[in-house]
């Protein structure tokens, strides 16, 4: 589904990703772990098409298409979804209207009929249950005045509504207390299917207690220094990033 080869990317002339490789197949959950500054968020933003970041080398194929040549909206319409580490507050834009616009944009791109407000209301109610969110949520402006946990839950609500093929979750666990983490993780687990894939970017192992990855990759200084199964996260938790780096000679 997703093939990343020798990806080099950075911001303002500073290279952050320095040869990132990964292959993600349908039905898989990949955890990308790494210390601060290792390039985790850069990877997420580059995949979503944030123009602040420049790709200097390498390729990214999503279902055989060159993702890097596509506009952010075209990536989204094709099924790529980024759950933001810091979701943006958008005053004056109603959450429900925004979700409906996004939902319909995706429907339209798939050649399906757009949902009218009433139809969408039913869909939204169902998705709200999935992420255990209150209906009041959707009548507020997008993320405005939301707590950290509410913002993250709103990202997962969007994921549920848009039903992406590839979801990149950028530190969705950061800033969440235990209860909120459980809710968010439950929501994510409900969205995992054999025909989609998740790249879970995280700093800590704790979310992996709730979501079981098929693969764990450790990122340091812009490239993967070690890959393994779910046990690698446990090993990492015990040893720490520095120790793993030393062992791999990175």
């Amino acid at each position: 589904m997703l093939v990343i080869r020798d990806l080099h990317a950075g911001i303002d002339g500073k290279e952050i990703l320095k040869g990132f490789d990964v292959e993600v197949k349908a039905g898989e959950v990949h955890a990308v772990m790494g210390p601060n500054g290792s390039g985790k968020s850069t990877l997420a933003k580059v995949l979503a098409g944030d123009e602040h970041f420049q790709v200097t080398k390498g390729e990214v194929l999503f279902r055989g298409n060159n993702l890097l040549e596509m506009e952010p909206e075209d990536r989204a319409l094709m099924g790529v979804f980024l759950a933001f580490q810091y979701p943006v507050e958008i005053p004056g834009v109603n959450n429900a209207s925004f979700l409906r616009m996004a939902y319909n944009a995706r429907r339209k791109a798939a050649g399906k009929e757009e949902a009218d407000p009433l139809e969408f209301d039913d869909i939204l109610k169902e998705k709200l249950k999935l992420v255990e969110m209150d209906e009041d949520f959707v009548n507020r402006s997008v993320n405005q005045g939301f707590s950290g946990g509410e913002k993250k839950r709103n990202e997962i609500l969007q994921m549920a509504v848009l039903d992406p093929t590839l979801a990149i979750l950028d530190e969705t666990d950061s800033g969440l207390d235990i209860d909120a983490l459980r809710v968010v993780a439950r929501g994510i687990n409900r969205l995992i299917r054999p025909d989609n894939a998740i790249v879970l970017i995280t700093h800590y192992q704790r979310i992996l207690g709730y979501i079981t990855p098929h693969f764990v990759h450790i990122l340091a200084d812009g490239r993967i220094i070690r890959s393994g199964g779910k046990d690698l996260a446990v090993e990492l938790e015990k040893k720490g990033y520095e120790k793993i780096r030393e062992e791999t000679g990175a």
Binding site: G49, E71, P72, E73, R75, L77, F98
Partner: peptide
Amino acid sequence: KDELFYLRSRGLSK
């Protein structure tokens, strides 16, 4: 720009 990107990342055109 951040707001524009956020909306576009959800499939809204520029």
